[in-house]
Design a protein around this nucleic acid. Structure first.
Lengths: 209, 209
DNA sequence: AAGGGTTTCATAACACCGTTCTGGTACCCG
DNA sequence: CGGGTACCAGAACGGTGTTATGAAACCCTT
């Protein structure tokens, strides 16, 4: 049942309709209501799954003795997850205008929970004197805001040549590390190291064939 | 006619329906088709108006002898415009899933046109040696990405106490200037100066009551 | 093992949506 | 003044989410 819903989210954005899902599952529209209490309950469930999947991606990065490289890798994992499930990511962050869908405070808190990984990594960056002393949660938020902005514009096809998303992302990564206190040369090296680590550590299965 | 459409966007997100507009305008649903060729044509027109309004906000900032302050003020104007027209901003950047609405390349280019203001300001920052030498358009894109990310999360109510949007925005502004090459103390001063200039230079009428 | 209560779903209906077709009206322009 | 065009009211079609109504299926108790 959830599988059918996930499949539909991957095939199309507004293919999420009670009748479409019912036809795909060989069932009736009532199934959606008995299991999820309506359409918005279903998308809420999918948002939860989306955050869980994001959490999976972020926890894949292992902590090395270069926390700045770890931090950059967290950003890469975040972006990779969003690009692997573009429609799901759009729904997670408000891309579901119809039916007055608004995610509850607990939902948002659940989403913000993924930030603890980043905050811990920021704390390690500060501990080894790569980042300036300060609030690790604040720098985690700054990383999140910038990366989310880039991913959002990339998914909306707003980032075109010659300022494509790849180039902007690389530049933004080192800029974020520098603005957090790291030395430009060191930041450049750590970001480059994270680029090498990406494919090994955070392998992404395609959005369900 | 456009006024009715604008009013509806301000009253609700999915109040944009042919019948609702027709009732509000005392007309029939056909009016939407004869004037805009359908629903997606209407929202496309509103997106254009949204970008025009954004451009208005950005051109309100006057160039002073402190281009970094001007740059920060551009960011404040961008955010203020988005907060003044939240639903319109959401629609501009992909928040209209139904009916397979996709904005054309020319639309996006029209949207990216607002970046020339920022790029020019970045060039001035570089010219006076406040920013490191480099591609002004690239730093303009970085400013855009970060500010857009913050505004998006703020509109989605993802930024809660104690890391609220105001605090994050201030921190991000100085961080952006620093990562572009400015000295932290100077960046702090210019950002503070831009905060003083905001209400005078870029006054925003409320989103049409 | 049988009965009662709960859960689950298929069907049909309702209200709403975007869209299209059909006329009829109003306008403008020669 | 006559003719052609642009515009729009109304009805209808296929789609959506949702609800009411039963009829099955299941489970759990006796």
């Amino acid at each position: 049942m959830d599988i059918a819903a996930g499949l539909l989210a991957a095939e199309g954005p507004q293919a999420l309709s009670t009748r479409r899902i019912a036809a795909e599952a060989g069932s009736s529209t009532m199934a959606v209501y008995t299991h999820f209490g309506g359409m918005i309950g279903l998308v809420r469930e999918m948002v939860h799954e989306g955050f869980a999947r994001l959490q999976d991606h972020l926890t894949k990065v292992v902590w090395t003795d270069d926390p700045v490289s770890d931090m950059a890798l967290l950003g890469r994992a975040y972006r990779r997850n969003a690009l692997a499930n573009p429609h799901l990511y759009a729904v997670m962050f408000g891309g579901f205008s119809p039916a007055g869908f608004t995610l509850s405070d607990t939902d948002r808190q659940h989403g913000r929970y993924t930030l603890v990984n980043v905050a811990q990594c920021a704390a390690r960056c500060i501990a080894v004197d790569r980042f300036d002393p300060g609030d690790p949660e604040l720098v985690a938020h700054r990383m999140w805001v910038a990366t989310h902005g880039l991913v959002t514009l990339e998914l909306g096809h707003y980032l075109l040549e010659p300022y494509d998303a790849d180039r902007l992302f690389e530049a933004q990564l080192v800029a974020l590390m520098v603005s957090a206190g790291d030395i430009p040369d060191a930041a450049e090296r750590s970001v480059a190291e994270s680029r090498r680590r990406l494919d090994d550590e955070v392998a992404t299965r395609l959005p369900q064939h």
